[in-house]
Amino acid sequence: MHRRFYIRVLTFIMVLVAANILLDQVYKNFVVHNILNNSKDEDFLEYDDTLTYLSMGNSHNTVNTYILENSYNYFSPAENFVQTYYKLKYILEETGKKPENLILFTDLSAFGPRAGNYFEHNSYWVKYVDFFELARIKDDRSAILNWVEGRFFSYAGNYRDFKLSLVYLIKIGKLELHNGYRPPRNFKNFAYERPEGVGILSDESSYDWSSAIPVDSSERIRRARQKSSIYFVDGAYPDRTLAIYFEKILQLCRNHNVNVILLRAPVTKEYFQDVSSRIPVEEIYERIEKIYARYPNVIKVLDYHDLYFDHPEYFFDGDHLNPKGAEEFTKELRKELK
């Protein structure tokens, strides 16, 4: 009886493992975040122009590389300083590419406890991030869980990505990139950022993005509140782990003679007001300043947070520029960097 039972248990486990490998591979090869991020990796390796500016950060990084010459926009969705550090380390130490300047997006949400505790798309990041080192620095074993998830269970908890991938496969197909920037021609490359809900199966190419941000100010306030309540949770600002990795980025750049330009991206007035009511914004920036003040390779600190307070039409939502906004913003940035 027991022998038969053990054989069955073993067979069951083997079937389970095989199904897991299959699902893991399907996710790693066909799911949109990996497609996007991996395409960018491949595209970056093929980039052979002068690299004057390398811009990194999360989706707030909307540097239009058509406008800012000799630049590469290497943002990835929900990227935090931990991930940026390891990716930059890889770029500087493994690819033989060296930018003159790093443009690093330093919005407050990038320093918050949520960003420090929330590691997404681990199946992509596992090739860069040393999760074991992170676990030691963070003093939190959950980083190892992120590694396990990225290595063996990439699909776990990511049901939305499967749906989203269908949008890409059916509606979009191949991703278009220009030095890391997704050109806004018919906006189709922005499909997954649609504010009504991630990955809605609809014809994104005909969507009028200019209507995404509501004209009505009270509705903009409501949406701003909704969003900032997600990002600005209770906890330490800057988050301890993120502060450490932010400094590690600056050290890494100093060691490789890379100048750093820190940048606060534009946000809507409503969004900024709501964030200010939740956390002491200026006080936190003073704390951050104490970190980067020690690094002479930080050559510029550009604060654009209030640049478009009177232009809600430049935004998708409270803290994301739309293609028109990105264009205007990059023109402004180019002027500043000249």
Partner: peptide
């Protein structure tokens, strides 16, 4: 097996 993967895919893992 379907239910195990259902929990893994649709669970809040992160």
């Amino acid at each position: 097996i379907g239910f195990i993967f259902y929990v893994l895919i649709f669970g809040i893992i992160n």
